[in-house]
Simulated assay, not measured.
Amino acid sequence: MPDPRPLLTRHRNVGALHHRLLDLRQAAGLPQTVSALRVADVGIWMAHPAPGYRCP
């Protein structure tokens, strides 16, 4: 499993992280029914694929 510390280090203020995720959701044109947690989930998944696997 990838180490989440780099993400958390860059966003020591949890409120700032939450707002950044909401900004990313809006920039992607996603509906408000997509949670900030889901945006983070997909972002981390896309940035840290399993060895030997390429994201589509």
Rank of each mutant, 00 (worst) to 15 (best):
P4A: 06
N13C: 10
A16Y: 04
R10L: 14
S35C: 01
G43M: 07
Q32W: 10
A40P: 00
A50L: 15
G52E: 08
T33R: 13
L37R: 14
G29P: 05
L17D: 01
R12K: 10
I44H: 11
G43S: 05
I44D: 09
P49K: 04
L22S: 04
C55N: 12
R54S: 10
V34M: 02
M1W: 13
A28I: 05
R20N: 08
L21M: 03
P2Y: 05
M46I: 11
W45F: 14
V14K: 13
D23E: 12
G52C: 04
Y53T: 15
A50T: 14
R5N: 15
R5Y: 15
P2S: 09
A27H: 09
P31F: 06
T33F: 10
L17T: 01
R20S: 12
A36F: 01
L37N: 09
P6Q: 08
I44N: 07
L30Y: 03
V34P: 00
I44T: 12
Y53I: 15
V42L: 11
V34Q: 01
A16Q: 10
R10G: 15
L30K: 06
G52Q: 06
R20C: 07
G43W: 04
L24S: 07
A50Q: 15
A28P: 00
P51C: 03
R25I: 02
R54Q: 11
C55P: 01
G43L: 10
D23P: 00
R38E: 10
C55R: 15
H19E: 13
P49Y: 02
V39L: 01
A16M: 07
R12D: 05
G29K: 08
P6H: 10
V34C: 00
Q26K: 14
R12N: 08
H48V: 06
A28C: 10
L8F: 14
P56K: 06
R38Y: 08
P31T: 06
Q32F: 11
L7C: 08
H18Q: 11
D23R: 01
N13W: 01
L21D: 00
P56W: 06
W45R: 13
V14G: 06
P56F: 06
P56E: 06
P2N: 08
P56L: 12
P6F: 10
R5V: 13
G29D: 08
L8K: 12
M46Y: 11
H11G: 04
P4D: 06
A47H: 07
P31M: 06
H11P: 01
T33Y: 08
M46W: 14
A50Y: 10
G52K: 02
A36R: 00
L24M: 13
L37P: 00
L22R: 04
N13I: 02
T9I: 12
D41S: 09
D23W: 00
D3Y: 05
R5L: 14
